[in-house]
């Protein structure tokens, strides 16, 4: 394959991903919106428009900014195909992003390349399928599993799933570029110790942490203080 043909193929692949992503996302969103309509028709039960508008307003005022920030922050990490998939399948910060980053790390691909695009799409797709399978199985076995999973004994384990996930991922990435982690880690630690309630707003802490980390890393990079990374 010549270089030119390869570049053209790659461009065409990305174009195709956008086209397919838009079609699939549109279809899934329409189907999702059809669900409450179908349920309303079946039950012949309709909430007041004012009540729904009030609820939508109170939810959207928080979640629209979060969604915008998520697209801005996560889509460069995920790439094209995985972004369309992840924003339809959900559970981004607690599952899809770390999963794609883990696959990226294990397979050893570079960001921004078609290889990374493919690995990332494969990773998010497999992750979505596994989650759907686990949830379907869990729903089928909800009677025997329910009491076990919600037992007081296991609660500390499930309450600490995110610290466990990001502790393990933290080692991988902090050890890659320890100097790059100094400023964002110090800032976030200080902020959350001074204003503990900030810890409950991780959706806002993530873009803030990412912005600080990028600015700090750029500062170190320009001054050639990073050394070898990776």
């Amino acid at each position: 394959m010549t270089e030119r043909t390869k570049a053209e193929n790659e461009k065409e692949f990305i174009e195709r991903l956008h086209r397919q992503g838009r079609i699939w996302c549109s279809a899934c969103i329409l189907l999702m919106l059809a669900a409450p309509v179908a349920i309303g028709l079946r039950l012949n039960a309709w909430p007041s428009i004012g009540g729904v508008a009030k609820g939508v307003f109170s939810v959207c005022i928080i979640y629209i900014p979060v969604c915008i920030v998520e697209v801005i922050t996560y889509s460069p990490l995920l790439g094209t195909g995985a972004s369309y998939l992840a924003f339809i399948t959900g559970n981004l910060s607690n599952l899809k992003i770390p999963c794609a980053m883990n696959a990226h790390e294990i397979v050893g691909v570079e960001f921004g390349t078609v290889e990374n695009e493919i690995v990332s799409t494969l990773s998010v797709a497999v992750s979505s399928l596994v989650t759907c399978a686990v949830l379907a199985l869990g729903v089928m076995l909800i009677a025997p599993l329910g009491p076990l999973l919600s037992s007081k004994f296991l609660q500390p384990a499930f309450n600490t799933i995110l610290p466990a996930l990001f502790g393990a991922m933290g080692f991988t990435y902090f050890s890659k570029a320890p100097k790059a982690a100094i400023a964002p880690a110090a800032f976030m630690t200080a902020l959350c110790l001074i204003i503990p309630a900030a810890g409950g707003q991780v959706g806002f802490l993530i873009p803030l942490g990412a912005a600080i980390a990028i600015i700090w890393t750029r500062f170190l990079y320009v001054r050639k203080k990073l050394g070898s990374v990776g």
Binding site: T73, P76, L77, S93, I97, M101, F111, G112, L162, P163, L165, F166, M169, G170, Y173, F174, K176, A177, A180, A181, P184, A185, F187, M188, T189, L191, C192, A198, G199, G200, V202, L205, I206, L208, G209, A210, A211, I212, A213, I214, W216, T217, R218, V229
Partner: peptide, 15 residues
């Protein structure tokens, strides 16, 4: 990209 993810991890460290 590495920095972006480090920032994300730091948010959870803060939490």
């Amino acid at each position: 990209f590495t920095a972006m993810f480090i920032g994300m991890v730091c948010a959870f460290v803060g939490a």
